[in-house]
């Protein structure tokens, strides 16, 4: 969503020839400008919460209705990949926090380095996500015309035990796994979209940081972007347990 670009974008300034270079003409003080920017960012994040809120509401409703389908479908997600991704994202968030610190203490080279590290880990997250999506594509678990439920009706037999690795679902319940995958793709897809927008913004911030824009005490863009990036982390912190962890069968 391109709105995020502007939300962070406009909180800082063009060059205006006032006492402070980044103070925009309609603000009285630098303090006021900074507070307004941060406050605007928080409000924007509130909007984002409501945006994801609709999906969470749908998730709760359908999870309640079609619990067996949700359990079986969530078993299809890879916990190792999810865990690795959670770790990657938290690391990325950690470097973002360090970047904010580096900007505050006006260390330009550190700032650039931390921003690059944030970006690298953000890209790594998307990379892992790509492999997860690819697997779903191969298994025909993408909702739509080619969605295939056979794996839920006749789960593959485990070589060790000779029993199906999953409890088989009846055909009518198996069809409901599509709803799980709709929500899975809608929620993680929206999340990934926010990541992509964030990474585009990161490139732009890195370019500006290298010019030294944020090394003279003007840190609002870095701070506000940090808020956004942490918000994206937190959304994942909710998505990971809801989609991957809750109510899995032990030993699968």
């Amino acid at each position: 969503m391109d709105n995020t670009i502007v939300a962070t974008h406009d909180t800082h300034a063009e060059e205006h020839h006032h006492s402070l270079p980044q103070l925009r003409h309609h603000f009285e003080t630098e303090e006021q400008q900074r507070e307004a920017g941060t406050f605007g960012m928080w409000l924007f994040l509130l909007t984002e919460i409501m945006f994801f809120g609709g999906l969470f509401f749908a998730y709760l409703l359908y999870r309640n209705w079609y619990n067996p389908a949700f359990v079986a479908a969530s078993n299809q997600l890879s916990i190792p990949m999810g865990t690795v991704n959670t770790a990657i994202l938290i690391t990325s968030g950690f470097f973002m926090a360090l970047a904010v610190w580096a900007a505050e203490v006006r260390k330009q080279s550190l700032l650039v380095m931390f921003l690059i590290l944030t970006t690298v880990f953000g890209c790594a997250f998307l990379g892992v996500k790509y492999f997860e999506y690819k697997e779903k594509w191969e298994k025909h678990h993408i909702p739509g015309a080619s969605f295939d439920v056979s794996e839920f009706i006749n789960p593959p037999v485990s070589a060790k035990t000779g029993k199906p690795i999953e409890e088989p679902l009846s055909p009518d319940m198996a069809r409901k796994t599509q709803i799980f995958f709709v929500l899975y793709f809608a929620m993680t897809g929206m999340h990934a979209l926010h990541m992509i927008i964030g990474i585009v913004l990161l490139f732009w911030l890195i370019a500006r940081a290298r010019k030294g824009d944020f090394s003279s005490g003007y840190v609002a863009p870095i701070e506000n972007f940090g808020l956004y990036w942490h918000f994206v982390d937190i959304v994942w912190i909710f998505l990971f347990p809801l989609l991957y962890l809750i109510n899995r069968h032990p030993g699968t």
């Binding site: 009846s170 009518d172 319940m173």
Partner: peptide
């Protein structure tokens, strides 16, 4: 009739196919 597996009577196996 349409979603039998959500309405399995106690003591019976969920084997009825859907008529959706």
């Amino acid at each position: 009739i349409l979603n039998p597996s959500q309405h399995v009577t106690a003591g019976y196996a969920p084997i009825m196919p859907t008529y959706q």
